[in-house]
Design a protein around this nucleic acid. Structure first.
Length: 350
DNA sequence: GATACCAGGGTATCATATCG
DNA sequence: CGATATGATACCCTGGTATC
C-alpha cells in the first residue's frame, strides 16, 4: 500500500471508534463512563433524538451541548473528578468535528462500549466454579501428595475454563456487531474491518486485565482452599503491621508467633519493597516467617532468594520446578526454598 | 539475563452518601 | 437510624516490553 493510501485510510472517520473507546474507558486521564451502560445508553439515545429532529440547523451544536449536559449532570456530585470530567468533555468537543463523527460516537457508545461491558462482565472473575470440586477430589484421594497437583491443576483448569468463556463472549459479541453493521449502517468492507478490529482490540485489552486480576485472586483462592481443607486455623493480622508486601493469610504457631502467607504468581519487581520490612520489624510483630507461595518461579533470581531468604522469608515452589531443584542443591539457597507439597506439613509442625 | 515500567483496566473492599 | 447505593482506593499481574 502506498503511503498516501495508508494516510487516507487512517483518516477514515471510523477509526475514531477505537479512539472513542479508549477515551471512554480511561479512568486516569478521563472518567470511565464506558463502565456505565445506563449512562451510555442515555447519551446514545438522546443524541439520536436530536439528530432525528427536522430542523437541521445547529444539530451538531445541540448534540454536543446535550452530551455535555448529561455528563455534567451525572458527575455533578463527584467534585474530585471534576478535572477529568472537563478534560473528557473538552477532548470530545475537539474530536467530534462533524455530524458524521457524532454518528461514529453514537455507534461507539451504543454498539461497542455497551456490548463490550456486557461481554467482559460475562467472563468469570474467578475460576472457582471450574476447579473447586475437582481440586477437592484430588486431596480426598491423594492426600498431601496431591497438593502440588491441585495447585497446577487449579491453574490449568481455571485458564482453560476462563479462556473458553472469553472466546465464547468475543465470538458472540463480534457476530452481533458484524450483523448490525451489515443491516443498519452503510459502511464499506474496509470500514467494517476498522470497526470490528477496534472492538476486538479493546475486548482483548480489557479481558487481559481481568485475566491478571483473576490469576492473582485464583492463587489466593487455592491457598484459602488448602488451609481450609486441612483445618488450619487462620490468625488475624498483627495490628499496625504494615509491610510493603501483601500478606494474604496469617497462621499462629504453637509458641504464639505468626507466619504470614503471601500468594503471588510472579514476584517481578514487587519484591524490592520487602527489603524495607527487615527481620527486626518482623520480630517486633512476632512474625516467625513469611511464606511465599509462587507458582511461576522462573523469574525468581538468586538475588531475590538470598536477600529475602535472609529476612526469614521462605519460598514454596512447585515440586517439579527447575528453580526449586537448582536452589535446593545450592549451599547458599537451600534453606530458603521448599516444595509446595510440604506446605501443609510445615504449617502443622509449627 | 535481571530488573523496572506500565499508551493500566478490572475488581474487591472499605468509606461515605442517600434513601425510606 | 439502618439499608442500600455510590465513590475512592489498593492490589492483581494465567504480563509484554524497555533498559541496563
Amino acid at each position: 500500500m502506498k503511503s498516501i493510501e495508508i494516510l487516507s485510510n487512517i483518516q477514515n472517520r471510523w477509526h475514531k471508534v477505537y479512539w472513542f473507546s479508549r477515551m471512554l474507558i480511561n479512568n486516569d486521564k478521563y472518567i470511565a463512563i464506558g463502565k456505565e451502560p445506563g449512562l451510555l445508553s442515555t447519551i446514545a439515545s438522546s443524541l439520536r433524538i436530536v439528530a432525528g429532529e427536522h430542523q437541521k440547523k445547529n444539530t451538531l451544536k445541540i448534540q454536543k451541548q446535550t452530551l455535555r449536559n448529561i455528563i455534567e449532570e451525572r458527575y455533578k456530585k463527584t467534585s474530585s473528578r471534576n478535572n477529568r470530567v472537563q478534560r473528557l468533555l473538552q477532548e470530545l468537543e475537539e474530536e467530534i468535528e462533524t455530524l458524521q463523527d457524532m454518528e461514529v460516537f453514537i455507534l461507539t457508545c451504543e454498539n461497542v462500549m455497551i456490548p463490550l461491558h456486557q461481554a467482559i462482565s460475562n467472563i468469570p472473575s474467578d475460576d472457582k466454579e471450574f476447579t473447586l470440586n475437582i481440586a477437592k477430589s484430588f486431596l480426598d484421594i491423594q492426600g498431601e501428595k496431591g497438593l502440588a497437583t491441585v495447585i497446577s491443576l487449579w491453574d490449568d483448569l481455571g485458564v482453560k475454563g476462563c479462556l473458553t468463556a472469553e472466546r465464547t463472549e468475543i465470538v458472540r459479541a463480534f457476530a452481533t456487531l458484524r450483523i448490525l453493521l451489515n443491516k443498519d449502517y452503510i459502511v464499506k468492507e474496509e470500514e467494517k474491518d476498522i470497526i470490528l478490529t477496534a472492538f476486538t482490540q479493546e475486548f482483548e485489552r480489557r479481558a487481559a486485565q481481568k485475566r491478571k486480576k483473576r490469576a492473582g485472586g485464583s492463587l489466593e483462592d487455592v491457598t484459602d482452599f488448602i488451609l481450609e481443607y486441612y483445618g488450619i486455623k487462620r490468625a488475624t493480622a498483627p495490628a499496625h503491621f504494615q509491610a510493603d508486601i501483601e500478606v494474604d493469610n496469617w497462621v499462629k504457631t504453637k509458641d504464639g508467633w505468626l507466619i504470614g502467607i503471601s500468594c503471588k504468581r510472579t514476584i517481578r519487581e514487587r519484591w524490592k519493597q520487602v527489603a524495607s520490612a527487615e527481620s527486626t520489624v518482623l520480630s517486633k510483630f512476632k512474625i516467625k516467617y513469611i511464606f511465599h507461595i509462587v507458582t511461576y518461579d522462573e523469574d525468581l533470581s538468586d538475588d531475590k532468594l538470598s536477600l529475602l531468604g535472609g529476612l526469614r522469608h521462605v519460598f514454596y515452589l512447585p515440586d517439579d520446578s527447575r528453580r526449586l531443584k537448582y536452589a535446593s542443591e545450592h549451599v547458599g539457597l537451600k534453606n530458603y526454598v521448599r516444595p509446595i507439597s510440604q506446605l501443609v506439613d510445615d504449617l502443622k509442625k509449627q
